[in-house]
């Protein structure tokens, strides 16, 4: 088990390309998915969840880290002082 993980760790490029192919696959798959139960307008747009996922993720990192650095983050002994 550890050897296999070691192999993947040393060949990170392979993992990367497999991942990118998977990503393209997800978008392609969306063109073939049946949408019979649309809950709102976004369900009609192809690749909507791709956009939602990527921007949601980036937005969350930027906003959360931003607020944390500006305000919430304190020294670990903040409450002991």
């Amino acid at each position: 088990m550890a050897k296999f993980l070691e192999y993947l760790h040393d060949h990170a490029n392979i993992v990367k390309y497999v991942f990118f192919i998977f990503l393209i696959g997800t978008v392609v798959f969306d063109f073939f998915a049946e949408r019979h139960e649309a809950h709102f307008w976004g369900d009609h747009i192809f690749g909507f969840w791709t956009i939602f996922g990527i921007f949601g993720c980036l937005g969350m990192i930027v906003i959360c880290k931003g607020i944390a650095h500006a305000w919430l983050m304190k020294d670990e002994n903040f409450y002991d002082k």
Binding site: K16, F19, F22, L23, T26, V27, F29, D30, F32, A33, E34, R35, H36, E37, D43, G47, W49, T50, F52, G53, I54, G56, C57, L58, I61
Partner: peptide, 23 residues
Amino acid sequence: YTSYHFSETIQLLGFTGFGFFLM
């Protein structure tokens, strides 16, 4: 297990992974 739910989930999660990769 409908194809749309499947598609929605793998897009969401896949591209979240891509976001992590970038950031």
